[in-house]
């Protein structure tokens, strides 16, 4: 069973039923990147719905078409998403995304890792 994966944009690891995605330093996400990110994520799912913890502290930018893809296609097989953010940049980014792209799965941003895990554990 595959529990770790890395591509040009992020590192993925699966631990105790939670999928951790950590975006790499200074990545700019456009539509092609978003498609790759979602595809690689789904390869770890093995057809199961999972809660996802997404560390976006190092993301540089995500453009509009990528945001739309991540919100709709990107929510496939996701039970809930917790973003790990750091004010102000990534916090703003997540707020903007949640407000305007309206992902259809429960999505919340956290500064504190423990709180994020507690949120995700309620969806396990």
């Amino acid at each position: 069973m595959l529990t770790y994966f890395r591509n040009d944009y992020a590192e993925y690891s699966l631990d105790e039923g939670i999928l951790y995605i950590t975006y790499l330093k200074d990545v700019s996400i456009d539509l092609n990147a978003a498609i790759q990110i979602v595809k690689d994520r789904l390869s770890l799912h093995e057809s199961q719905f999972l809660p996802v913890l997404c560390d976006i502290r190092d993301v540089k930018e995500v453009n509009k078409s990528a945001r739309a893809y991540l919100a709709i296609e990107g929510s496939t097989l996701i039970k809930a998403v917790a973003f790990i953010v750091e004010p102000p940049v990534s916090e703003m980014l997540s707020e903007f995304y949640i407000q305007t792209s309206n992902p259809p799965v429960p999505t919340k941003a956290f500064i504190d890792m423990e709180e994020a895990l507690a949120f995700l554990n309620s969806f396990k």
Binding site: K25, D26, S28, R57, D58, K60, E61, N63, K64, R67, E86, P87, P88, V89, S90, E91, M92, L93, F96, T100
Partner: peptide, 25 residues
Amino acid sequence: ERSSQNNNVEALIIMLNMLAEEIQE
């Protein structure tokens, strides 16, 4: 243009860029 710093100006820039994208759309 974005730099990789994390401060209020950068936060404002990222918001402004995304806002312009949304309005354009």
